[in-house]
Design a protein around this nucleic acid. Sequence first.
DNA 1: ATGAAAGTGGAGCATTGCTCCGAATCAAAT
DNA 2: ATTTGATTCGGAGCAATGCTCCACTTTCAT
Lengths: 191, 191
Amino acid sequence: MDESEKSPVRAKRADAQRNEKALLDAAAAVFVSSGVDAPVREIAAQAGVGMGTIYRHFPMRADLIVAVYRHQVDACAEAGPGLLAESASPYEALGRWVDLFVDFLVTKHGLAVALGSNQASFATLHDYFIDRLVPVCKQMLEAAVVAGEIRRDVGAYELMRGIGNLCIFADKDSRYDARRLVGLLVSGLRV
Amino acid sequence: MDESEKSPVRAKRADAQRNEKALLDAAAAVFVSSGVDAPVREIAAQAGVGMGTIYRHFPMRADLIVAVYRHQVDACAEAGPGLLAESASPYEALGRWVDLFVDFLVTKHGLAVALGSNQASFATLHDYFIDRLVPVCKQMLEAAVVAGEIRRDVGAYELMRGIGNLCIFADKDSRYDARRLVGLLVSGLRV
DNA sequence: ATGAAAGTGGAGCATTGCTCCGAATCAAAT
DNA sequence: ATTTGATTCGGAGCAATGCTCCACTTTCAT
């Protein structure tokens, strides 16, 4: 996967590359302060570009969100096999992996909502999370089933959606602890 | 609590009463077809009144939502003690009561989101649900704890919020079954 | 019947998502 | 260095929506 030389198409213009970088940085900053549902204008202003430029580089809001969080999602996905290998049991590995995911989600204001929403503008985001994380989750789930630790009738997709949902608005209410409830949900998996 | 005769203040004008009724009916209909987050203009149009009239009767969106669903929430709250009395165990009663709540929530498009959101405009809604349902839930939870059926470290408020969250977007994705996941969450309560 | 109080309607402002196209910029060719 | 065609940019402008404000209308006690 070499990004630097694509023979068929001409490389992107220098200013376009600069702007894309600026946009990514700006979005990351704004997402932290105002959540992933911050106004497009705010991100554009922070990056010092016009709105047209945002839509040119990231046609849908989800494209920008994915670009900003891709690394962290990948890291979470890649942590799965390691946990499975080094944990005392598949169930324990699953629990630790889920904690990773929850910690990621609850610190990204508004991300869990966007994830659950089936709006067309968020399709890319939804799909990226699903494509990347569901297979890992599925693997851990199956290992735990084989080990006889959990029930076999819960799918990885459904579990991930449930965890995502439990993280919605978790940052807005001090009386609500998403980690604790996700823990409850996961212990509900036990045979 | 007699609504029909309030001595000190003059009774509401006849046209105002008519409009309030029309608004309630219109809102109920629109909530079914377009969800509780339907545009205010749509509800006004359906009721055949101006927008000013909506805001006069129901200053915040939550007021209208509460007015529409008050009966059903009350019914759910009142079903609690009966279930506790007639079920084989407190835990079973809790499970059945939670099913009632979930069935109510998943059929009201967008309600679960509004419930979880801590926006000021939804404060009344949030508070009404909490005031009405948390005490009932707490009672069942405590009974189940006393019976030694569930762990004692989960609060009623947190559980209700978790259930509400699991119902978010439940109507938008056929691969996701809120009832099943709530069931999982509740079985996670077991000691 | 009448006038004050209560209620109404919808124009209008603010916010936000998104499109569109003339202007600005870039890079290849000369 | 200049030209020139392609690429990219910027932000005005449109549409949707929440909410306010107040001149006008309706009701009702007198």
